[in-house]
Design a protein around this nucleic acid. Structure first.
Length: 864
RNA sequence: GCCCGCUUGACGGAAUGGUAGACGUAGCGGACUUAAAAUCCGCGGCCCUACGGCGUGGGGGUUCGAGUCCCCCAGCGGGCACCA
């Protein structure tokens, strides 16, 4: 580690420091009640087999935060684990005839080695894999606790069903209405499933968003929209010739007088009843049921309706008869599964009315329009205004009319105020093998019986086969046969497993004490570490994973597991890693590693020399082959180079384009820094490590010290705000200056000391970003201790203040010059100095200033 | 379809409403070298000989002053409940 070489030996150096950190247990986390804690967590990966650049970016960001906070004196918890249940393992099993457990465990082993080569400051002693019974047994217990607490229930719900594979399909497995593997037309099917009552916390989850101040606004907004709280009314329409009525939910009860139809969901009980003796309607309902369950598919499909022949009586206009349709865009899950349509003031209702020739009656006059002459143009009007054609509501504003009409409906007993949420309860049943078994037993006599606590965990059997369509747990010869815990009669195990979001909804708590086996985690440890201070991951998890975790935390609290409401106090959502795409002849996608550059800068296929077309920069994906293997990059340039590039080119929230040139640039910088420190030491000009500051310091040396301390202050601020790219730029600026001074020849009182201070500052500031190089240089600079155990540098305030400041001078907002002024000079003096500038006088063309705006230490603007 | 975000030199990006383009990448010129690589130095938004003018996706607005705030539009991307 300490010989003099001309080139930086990355491989040896990085491996040596990784071994040293591990040997010393540098990153082991231990609870210290007297020290401030800081919990840094990156979203744990699905063990797909190899890490990808998205992981490298995510974990680099987290590692910078973890190492920085450690240097700032925090007791840091920075764990890593594996989100190890999921579909890809089953797909691999089917395609490659390898057992999901074996596949997953091998992937974990491979990826662990890859992550270790990045030099991440994890406490590997806390590693967890969610597919192991030691982990998932606890969520089985939690599920039973939730059941007892009334947070779990069972009901029927619709799924995408592949009739050939005999299996439920994920939305992403449904392509154009067909199963991705079988190609069979997908059907909707009703299955009995377990649900978690997330809607019980809808208001709380919504309101608590306000306090998540360290979450990005857009994520909070996305969750707000997802929860989708709306205030409206439930309105009951009588049905002509029937004793039952139709209850609809609406956010626009003010437009009731403009209603021209009602529509119900295809799976509304009324639709089912009517379809029983109406084959055409039955066919229409069946057609709706063939649509995917995804909202995007439903919303983009052509809006269709089927007139049932039923007529509904408008409660505010009893003489009016509204046709009742079954419509493919009405969702049973939302509101009451029935709506009334007011075409004049809603786009979808408008389209529907146009299509089926229904009346379009305006009932809201836009502001400024004559209420008497309101007509409907090419588009519905959805804004505020005054009610017209609406009986007792005429002349009221939209909000007034809402209040008035609901009051009337309530008085007449035909409706009431109602708050509705778009949020639906969380269906957690999956008809899949590679997941956590749901600890329930079905008994013919006793019904649904929870697995007794002493029988937990229900272990997922590994002796299963994938040769038949459907769920292997179902085909297992013996596993599901069990005696009923209540009556002892033969009974059957639940063969569904949990949604894999279940595992990721509490892993952050497990990390607090992964070693305990009789509970999910130790309460005291959770009380010490939680909430996670900084969570880092992709924006694609902005809603589901983060909302489920927020819900789960509340559910765990309600059951006494922990004491916090919110799992993640701070959130950073990183952008994607992108790369150019390449196609060869015949349009085949090519890996970047298959593409070579010709002398004139053109691109060819490396092996054949045939031409290559360059496509757009897109998210790295296997399908387009625009991927770069992190292992290859780390093997060639080292982890620090990869980390530096990840940090320096783009702010973390934005997408990052991976380029060879960028990596080369980072690599050159790593070597430049290494050389610069080596040369400085070899020159013998620097004082030894720890030397006291000299009494006399020249102006030149003070200038270096100012630059050093300004950099320390700025980088500290940048890291606090996650502006890593700016932090890198600033240290580079400092090392550019130091390099200049070093090559100019060190001289004058105090300069060698100032240069050492500068070099050490650069090394320390880079510590969280390029830990191996920084650790190596720190040692070479003569320090015995580890940089990883060294405190963050502090800026001396006296060196941050300047006596002069450059002030811009504008005439009518246009820059005409600058002037150097003492800091905080009075306005009159600033104005005088500005007016004295030649170009300023020229631009004023002899006119007298009408006004002079002076912003102290910034700008003087002369208005003429 | 609905919701959210982004758009600044050739490229990635800087810029509490106050000097647009920090820092880097690519490029160009030079030094070193037999040569190349590496390294070092210099140049660098666009137009103009200059004075100066024009520039932050397009259009409008607020302001002494707009990349930044407001409105409209376009393009690109993310999410939409069983991928994780």
């Amino acid at each position: 580690m300490s010989h003099t070489e001309d080139r930086y030996n990355v491989k040896e150096t990085e491996a040596a420091w990784q071994a040293e950190w591990e040997r010393r247990g540098t990153f082991r986390a231990v609870e210290h009640a007297d020290r401030p804690k800081y919990y840094v967590l990156e979203m744990f990966p699905y063990p797909s087999g190899r890490i990808h650049m998205g992981h490298v970016r995510n974990y680099t960001l987290g590692d910078v935060v973890a190492r920085y906070k450690k240097a700032r004196g925090f007791n840091v918890l920075h764990p890593m684990g594996w989100d190890a249940f999921g579909l890809p393992a089953e797909n691999a099993a089917i395609q490659n005839n390898v057992h999901p457990a074996k596949w997953t465990r091998e992937n974990i082993a491979a990826m662990r080695e890859q992550l270790k080569s990045m030099g991440l400051s994890y406490d590997w002693g806390r590693e967890v894999a969610t597919c192991e019974p030691e982990y998932y047994r606890h969520e089985q217990k939690m599920f039973l606790d939730f059941l007892e607490a009334g947070l779990v229930y069972r009901r029927e719900s619709w799924v995408n069903w592949d009739p050939v594979e005999n299996t439920v399909l994920a939305n992403e497995q449904v392509i154009d209405g067909r199963g991705w593997r079988s190609g069979a037309a997908v059907e909707k099917r009703l299955l009995s499933q377990w649900f978690l009552r997330i809607t019980a916390f809808a208001d709380e989850l919504l309101e608590a968003l306000t306090d998540l101040e360290r979450w990005p606004d857009r994520v909070r907004l996305m969750q707000e929209n997802w929860i989708g709280r709306s205030e409206g009314a439930r309105v009951r329409f009588a049905l002509e010739g029937r004793i039952d009525g139709l209850e609809v939910y609406t956010t626009r009860p003010d437009t009731l007088f403009g209603a021209s139809f009602c529509a119900i969901a295809a799976n509304h009980p009324l639709a089912a009843e009517l379809a029983a003796d109406n084959p055409a309607l039955a066919e229409f309902v069946a057609e709706c049921n063939r649509m995917s369950t995804s909202e995007a598919a439903i919303e983009t499909a052509e809006k269709k309706g089927f007139a049932t022949g039923l007529l509904a009586l408008n409660p505010v206009r009893p003489e009016q008869r509204l046709p009742v349709y079954v419509a493919n865009f009405v969702l049973m899950e939302y509101g009451t599964g029935a709506i009334f349509g007011c075409p004049a003031h809603d786009q979808r209702d408008f389209d529907f009315a146009r299509k089926y020739g229904l009346p379009i009656v305006p009932v809201v006059a836009p502001p400024g329009m004559d209420p008497a002459g309101v007509t409907v143009g090419d588009a519905p009007y959805t804004g505020d205004g005054l009610l017209v054609n609406s009986g007792f509501l005429n002349g009221k504003t939209v909000p007034e009319a809402k209040r008035a009409v609901i009051d009337r409906l309530e008085a007449e007993g035909v409706g009431e105020r109602s708050v509705n949420y778009r949020l639906r309860d969380w269906g957690v049943s999956r008809q899949r093998y590679w997941g956590c078994p749901i600890p329930i037993i079905h008994c013919a006599k006793c019904g649904i019986v929870p697995v007794p606590e002493q029988d937990l965990p229900v272990v997922l059997p590994e002796d299963v086969t994938f040769d038949k369509p459907g769920n292997p747990l179902d085909h297992h010869p013996t596993w599901k046969d069990v005696a009923c815990p209540t009556c002892g009669a033969p009974a059957r195990r639940e063969t569904d497993t949990f949604d894999t979001f279940f595992e990721s909804s509490w892993y952050f708590a497990r990390f607090c004490s992964p070693q305990v086996s009789d509970r999910p985690f130790d309460r005291a440890a959770a009380d010490y570490w939680l909430p996670v201070d900084q969570y880092i991951g992709g924006i694609e998890h902005a809603v589901l994973h983060l909302l489920y975790s927020r819900f789960f935390t509340r559910a765990m609290k309600q059951c006494g597991y922990l004491g916090v409401d919110e799992p993640f106090a701070g959130l950073l959502t990183q952008g994607m890693v992108c790369h150019e795409t390449y196609r060869g002849e015949e349009g085949r996608w090519l890996f970047p590693s298959d593409v070579a550059k010709t002398a004139d800068g053109g691109l060819i296929e490396a092996t054949t020399g045939r031409p290559v077309t360059v496509g757009r920069v897109e998210k790295m994906s296997k399908s387009k082959k625009n991927v770069v293997d992190p292992e290859h990059i780390i093997g060639t340039y080292g982890a620090d180079t990869a980390r530096l590039f990840m940090l320096s080119d783009s702010p973390p929230e934005r997408d990052l384009e991976w380029t060879d040139a960028g990596v080369d640039g980072a690599w050159r910088y790593v070597n430049r820094l290494w050389r610069m420190v080596g040369d400085a030491l070899a020159s013998g000009a620097l004082p030894p490590a720890g030397a006291a500051a000299p009494a006399e310091v020249s102006e030149r040396a003070v200038a270096v010290r100012r630059a050093t301390h300004k950099t320390i202050a700025a980088v500290t601020e940048d890291l606090e705000r996650f502006h890593f790219n700016k932090a890198v730029a600033r240290v580079r600026e400092l090392t550019n200056l130091l390099s200049e001074r070093l090559s100019a020849g060190v001289d004058g009182p105090g300069e060698p000391w100032a240069l050492r201070e500068g070099l050490e500052a650069a090394v320390r500031l880079f510590g969280p970003m390029m830990p191996h190089l920084a650790e190596e240089l720190w040692r070479r600079l003569g320090h015995e201790d580890l940089l990883a155990d060294t405190d963050w540098p502090t800026a001396e305030p006296a060196l941050l203040v300047e006596s002069l400041v450059t002030v811009a001078v504008q005439v009518n907002g246009k820059l005409r010059g600058t002037v150097d002024l003492p800091v905080d000079v009075d306005r009159a003096a600033a104005e005088q100095a500005a007016l004295a500038l030649g170009p300023v006088a020229a631009a004023m063309a002899g006119k007298t200033p009408r006004k002079v705006i002076v912003v102290p230490n910034r700008i003087v603007n002369v208005v003429v």
